[in-house]
Nucleic acid binder design. Structure first.
Length: 209
DNA sequence: GCGATGATGAACT
DNA sequence: GTTCATCATCGCA
């Protein structure tokens, strides 16, 4: 399959979140090693503007500057002191919309992924946003990397029928929660498991109306 | 099978 | 000092 061209990413965030499903994310392993490949099965859209859950909601900062780059830019950030998460910037350039990669199905380089993840379980290799970055080796060195570059890219795949695309609220956020901006491949066992819904704030009694 | 909890660091108030 | 776009592990059933 062909690599996706730069203009593929030049579309509205919510649409890009759907169109990325089924595509193959490729990470070049260098030195003639087998490239690492995963089929994208779950995404979340973080829109420009009214989306309070977006890192760009309060405007441009040093941390989120990659979100303001051209469509097809990787925005990588460190979360919860343990994990790197990867986003793909959408259009229009400068608005800071992005799509979070939440889960993939391992396609190639699976032995290497198993080694990096420390598990043999196929369903645990990439079934979460922190898991897939570990499996692929995405880290700070990929901050603001172009997905149209030579180190990583996305291969095209037949478009999924809308009947295979599921929608739900995003996971793990508290601001702008409830918006149906998570997209996933219906029936894929590699979609992240929706764990316990909410954890009470540490040391706080939360009163809600 | 299930829910609860600590790890751990950077941005932000 | 608080807040996270998380994960693995532990205790209990």
């Amino acid at each position: 399959m062909e690599r996706l061209a730069p203009d593929f990413f030049d579309m509205p965030t919510l649409l890009l979140a759907e169109r990325l499903l089924g595509k193959i994310f490729v990470m070049d392993a260098g030195h003639g090693n087998t490239p690492l490949k995963g089929r994208i099965v779950e995404t979340e859209a973080y829109l420009a503007g009214e989306d309070e859950a977006s890192h760009a909601w309060r405007g441009r900062t040093h941390r989120n500057r990659a979100m303001f780059g051209p469509p097809g830019t990787l925005y990588v950030y460190f979360s919860y002191g343990c994990h790197y998460l990867a986003n793909i910037v959408s259009e229009p350039e400068g608005s800071a919309g992005a799509v979070l990669l939440r889960a993939m199905e391992p396609v190639e380089g699976i032995d290497e992924m198993r080694r990096r993840r420390g598990t043999d379980d196929l369903l645990s290799l990439m079934s979460g946003p922190g898991k897939l970055t570990q499996a692929l080796g995405i880290g700070p060195e990929h901050y603001a990397e172009s997905l149209v570059g030579s180190r990583c890219w996305i291969e095209d795949a037949p478009e999924l029928s809308s009947a295979k695309i599921g929608t739900s609220p995003r996971i793990g956020i508290s601001r702008s929660a409830g918006l149906p901006w998570r997209k996933f491949v219906i029936g894929s066992p590699h979609v992240s498991k929706t764990r316990t819904a909410s954890r009470p704030k540490k040391g706080l009694i939360v009163l809600e109306s």
